[in-house]
């Protein structure tokens, strides 16, 4: 199983974002480093620009995506993936998630029930275009997040 380590502060920020945007889906990018395993240290909240049905769908402005690539370059970080929430649904990728997913990226999904983030899981596409779950480890130390 692939492994992804998450800095506590960044993970808390993702959980908070998911709760603040409830009952709609939230979304954002995350960054860090990759050597033997992935380590998420930075997140960037992004607006869900889906015009309708934001409780079940998210969409990110391509300009935000371009800014995220530049942010990673400027800060010498690896652009590791995308997070989003599933309000009142499990933290498991849907068929829709799979159909539009990209290779390489990790997809962190937060399940939100009754406005509270209850479960966080991370997924990555395999060579057969199916999602494999990543082992998720929360790092206890506080890392600077900007």
């Amino acid at each position: 199983m692939m492994k992804i380590k998450l800095a506590k502060q960044a993970l808390d920020e993702i959980r908070s974002h998911a709760e603040e945007d409830y009952p709609n889906e939230c979304c954002g990018f995350f960054f860090g480093s990759e050597k033997n395993f992935r380590k998420m240290t930075h997140i960037k909240r992004v607006k869900n620009i889906q015009s309708e049905n934001r409780k079940r769908r998210f969409r990110i402005d391509p300009d935000e995506y371009r800014r995220a690539e530049r942010f990673a370059d400027q800060h010498e970080l690896d652009f590791l993936g995308i997070y989003h929430s599933h309000p009142e649904h499990p933290a498991i990728p849907s068929e829709h998630d799979r159909s539009v997913a990209l290779p390489f990226f990790s997809y962190i999904i937060v399940s939100v029930t009754g406005g509270k983030s209850v479960r966080v899981r991370s997924w990555r596409l395999n060579e057969s275009q199916q999602f494999d779950e990543e082992e998720l480890e929360e790092l206890p130390e506080i890392e600077k997040v900007s």
């Binding site: 889906e25 979304c27 889906q50 769908r57 969409r59 371009r66 599933h86 649904h89 539009v100």
Partner: peptide, 11 residues
């Protein structure tokens, strides 16, 4: 020229 994936998903 930039190639930019459109990011989307959901339930």
């Amino acid at each position: 020229i930039s190639i930019v994936p459109a990011i989307a998903g959901g339930l």
